[in-house]
C-alpha cells in the first residue's frame, strides 16, 4: 500500500505529537518523524505543515540564534495546538479501531 497517501491524512497530528513532545526546528521535526518510523515523510510536506499549523495558531515559533551555522526557527505547541492534538488523537483512535475491526473481521470471515 502506498503509505505516502495514508501519511497525508495524518501528517498534522503526527507533527503536532512530535512538537508536543519537545520544541523543534524544521529538519529536527523531520528527523524525529523518520526516527519514529515514518520513513516516507517528505521534507517539504513537514515544513509546509509546520507553517500551516503555525498560521492556524496551533504552534508558537521563535528564533534561536546559533554561534555556528544559521539561526533556527523553533516551533512549540500552545494550548490551541494541544486541544487540536487531543481531538485528532481521539479521532485517530476511533478511526484506527474501526479500520482494524473491519480489516480483522474481513480477514476472519
Amino acid at each position: 500500500m502506498d503509505t505516502t497517501q495514508l501519511l497525508k491524512g495524518v501528517l498534522d497530528v503526527a507533527v503536532l505529537a512530535v512538537v508536543a513532545e519537545e520544541d523543534g526546528y524544521g529538519y529536527d521535526v523531520v528527523r524525529r518523524l523518520r526516527a519514529a518510523g515514518l520513513a516516507e515523510v517528505g521534507d517539504a510536506s513537514v515544513y509546509g505543515t509546520l507553517r500551516r499549523l503555525y498560521s492556524q495558531g496551533a504552534l508558537t515559533s521563535y528564533v534561536v540564534p546559533s554561534d555556528e551555522g544559521p539561526h533556527r526557527k523553533y516551533y512549540g505547541i500552545n494550548a490551541q495546538g494541544r486541544a487540536m492534538l487531543d481531538a485528532q488523537r481521539t479521532d485517530w483512535r476511533e478511526f484506527a479501531g474501526t479500520m482494524s475491526r473491519l480489516l480483522d473481521g474481513k480477514a476472519a470471515a
Binding site: Y25, G26, Y27, Y47, R51, G69, P70, R72, K73
Partner: peptide, 14 residues
C-alpha cells in the same frame, strides 16, 4: 519568506 526562511539550513542538514 515565511515558507522558506530556514530552507538552506534544513536542506543542508538533510
Amino acid at each position: 519568506d515565511d515558507l522558506t526562511d530556514d530552507l538552506e539550513a534544513d536542506l543542508a542538514d538533510a
